[in-house]
């Protein structure tokens, strides 16, 4: 036991919170299997969770970077809606091709990143205010671009949307006795690539290290010769760029443009990051944790809906409750650890 407490004390903040997240995720999934029956045992159930949340994984990665640097960005949901709508309008009304629509998505993300990054880093405005305005701007712009929601008919886009990547060895036999292959959508591949890229960026590059340094203590980072402003700028740039890419992945999943798309996605992204062990105060966080955060969040959503509590309000309430619990856990764990270190 004393060995365990010693290990607990020796853990860095990042490791500690990451462990909590992964344990919670596995407990939750096992609980789902036990209480909700066999549905959760099928690999495809898990892959469906991935399919539906590929965009959220990408958004959360960006959010984690900003939060590690000590900021926050609540415009990602709005950017997702804006990207979906712009790409949809371009593909259907302007008869454009898919590659250019992707460029549009990335362009919107970059533009957002540059403006918000400049305002936050170089003009020292609170990131929350900037991104709140950004969120409202994006939502408003979405309706200005096109008011009514519509489904995209573009053929090459449909082909891309319906592309399925088969996961070998994970299929299952359905009720008719036919073997069905397990599959994921293209978005999942993009999301996994981005998770790996962001993990490497945060772990092994100078920029990634700077994010942690600036988030941990701005003053010391400055004294170490880190360009604090540029680091902050880069964090917002990466976040918005990922919001653009995530927006396109979302668009690929739903295949339509609407002003109400991704409502509350910023909240889910923040919640995932927090559940994944990213501290709001900055300096602590991990992309792997964020990944598991998204999985925990979407698993609980699945549990809620398969438990028959299908009304829309339960999802909102459970996510909020979960976020609340994790925030309090963070706050308590950190306070206890600080006391333990002092002793």
């Amino acid at each position: 036991m004393s060995n365990l407490t010693k290990k607990f004390k020796d853990m860095t903040d990042t490791q500690l919170l990451l462990t909590i997240t992964i344990v919670v995720f596995f407990l939750m999934y096992i609980g789902a299997i036990v209480f909700q029956g066999k549905g959760f045992l099928k690999p495809q159930t898990f892959f469906n969770i991935l399919n539906a949340n590929a965009a959220l994984i990408i958004l959360s990665c960006g959010m984690s970077v900003v939060m590690i640097t000590g900021g926050i960005d609540i415009s990602v949901g709005g950017v997702t809606a804006l990207v979906s709508m712009c790409a949809a309008v371009y593909l259907d009304f302007k008869g454009g091709n898919v590659a250019v629509s992707m460029l549009i998505a990335i362009g919107i993300g970059l533009a957002y990143g540059i403006v918000q990054g400049l305002l936050v880093a170089y003009l020292d405005i609170q990131p929350f205010i900037v991104s709140l305005a950004g969120m409202f701007f994006a939502r408003g712009m979405t309706t200005i671009v096109n008011t009514n929601p519509f489904n995209v008919q573009n053929e090459s886009f449909q082909a891309l949307k319906n592309a399925r990547i088969i996961v070998p060895g994970m299929g299952s036999v359905n009720k008719k006795g036919v073997y069905v292959n397990a599959y994921v959508e293209i978005g999942v591949i993009v999301a996994i690539v981005i998770v790996i890229l962001m993990f490497c960026l945060l772990k092994w590059t100078k920029l990634g290290r700077n994010f942690y340094a600036v988030g941990g203590n701005k003053q010391s980072a400055l004294m170490l010769g880190i360009n604090v402003k540029r680091t902050k700028f880069m964090s917002h740039l990466i976040c918005s760029l990922l919001a653009g890419i995530g927006g396109y992945v979302y668009f690929l999943h739903v295949g339509s443009g609407a002003a109400t798309h991704a409502q509350g996605a910023e909240m889910n992204a923040i919640a995932s990051s927090i559940i994944g062990g990213t501290m709001l105060t900055g300096g602590v966080g991990n992309i792997i944790g964020t990944f598991f955060g998204v999985l925990s969040l979407s698993t609980i959503q699945n549990i809620v809906s398969s438990a028959g509590l299908d009304q829309a309000w339960w999802t909102g309430i459970t996510i909020a409750a979960m976020l609340c619990i994790f925030l309090v856990i963070q706050s308590v764990v950190m306070a206890r650890k600080k006391r333990a270190v002092k002793k």
């Binding site: 305002l119 405005i125 305005a133 950004g134 409202f136 939502r139 408003g140």
Partner: peptide, 19 residues
Amino acid sequence: DALPAYKAVVVILLVVFSA
């Protein structure tokens, strides 16, 4: 529905000038 976009611009101008 488009109102937030205009207001957002006002907010940004306001915070920029009070920064």
